[in-house]
């Protein structure tokens, strides 16, 4: 086995790949969340549009985006194949579920939560990413900005509900994934690990809450 092939074949290498790509996706969430939160400037989306414009046309951002999509695809493919492989390790299932809980339901459901997020992502990229990146598809103009477009999408309660559900899945996925990544890196420290766990819980609540709040406040017409 080569120096790098272990990343895609050994049990530890595979989870290392999940952790590295997972942490880079967490870093992306910080940027995405900060830009979305610009709608709270209450300036009719001017700051938000400026930020979105920068993200869409800056060369370095576009290059980073290629890396992001690569990392995302690896996270998805490796995650699905790991989940499917792990399901084959116990052919005869238990007759009784554990009476005394030994782990959290979301830590055992990362494959399911990830699949929900993947479906959400397909819808989300179709809704906004394609319009903001490929001018011919959506036709964003001076008068019809990404902010206007977002307001339009969220007048319908169906996408609002789906986006909130997507954010709840994200919260639970992060609640396990954030601290789990550091355990995979081999970091289990008497002082640092409790700090990472607290930070992980805070991140998993705050970031999805900010994301989920935007469709809701736009739908209820609470910001101008």
């Amino acid at each position: 086995m080569g120096v790098l092939s272990f990343l895609f074949s050994s049990s530890i290498g595979r989870k290392l790949v999940m952790a590295v790509t997972g942490v880079s996706l967490i870093a992306f969430l910080v940027v995405h969340c900060a830009i979305n939160a610009c709608v709270y400037f209450m300036d009719g989306g001017a700051t938000f549009n400026a930020a979105a414009e920068f993200m869409a046309h800056n060369l370095f951002i576009r290059l980073a985006e290629v890396g992001l999509i690569g990392g995302l695809l690896i996270h998805i493919v490796q995650g699905l194949s790991l989940t499917l492989d792990n399901m084959k390790k116990r052919n005869n299932k238990y007759g009784a579920a554990p009476k005394r809980s030994n782990s959290t339901w979301y830590s055992r459901s990362m494959g399911l939560l990830g699949t929900i997020l993947l479906l959400f992502l397909v819808m989300h990229l179709k809704d906004f990413w394609i319009v903001s990146r490929f001018d011919a598809q959506g036709g964003l103009t001076e008068t019809k900005t990404l902010y206007h477009f977002m307001v339009e999408v969220f007048t319908n309660p169906v996408p609002v509900t789906l986006y909130v559900l997507g954010c709840i899945s994200l919260a639970y996925h992060l609640l396990h994934g954030f601290q789990s990544a550091f355990q995979t890196f081999g970091l289990n420290h008497p002082i640092l690990t409790p700090m990472i766990k607290t930070l992980g819980v805070a991140f998993s609540i705050i970031v999805p809450l900010v994301f989920a709040s935007i469709p809701v406040v736009l739908h209820l017409d609470l910001i101008k």
Partner: peptide, 20 residues
């Protein structure tokens, strides 16, 4: 680790059930 993988044990997903 190679032997562990060859024996057909699954990959760890850090649920913590083992330690509990």
């Amino acid at each position: 680790v190679n032997q562990m993988d060859a024996e057909g044990f699954g990959a760890c997903t850090n649920t913590g059930a083992c330690a509990a």
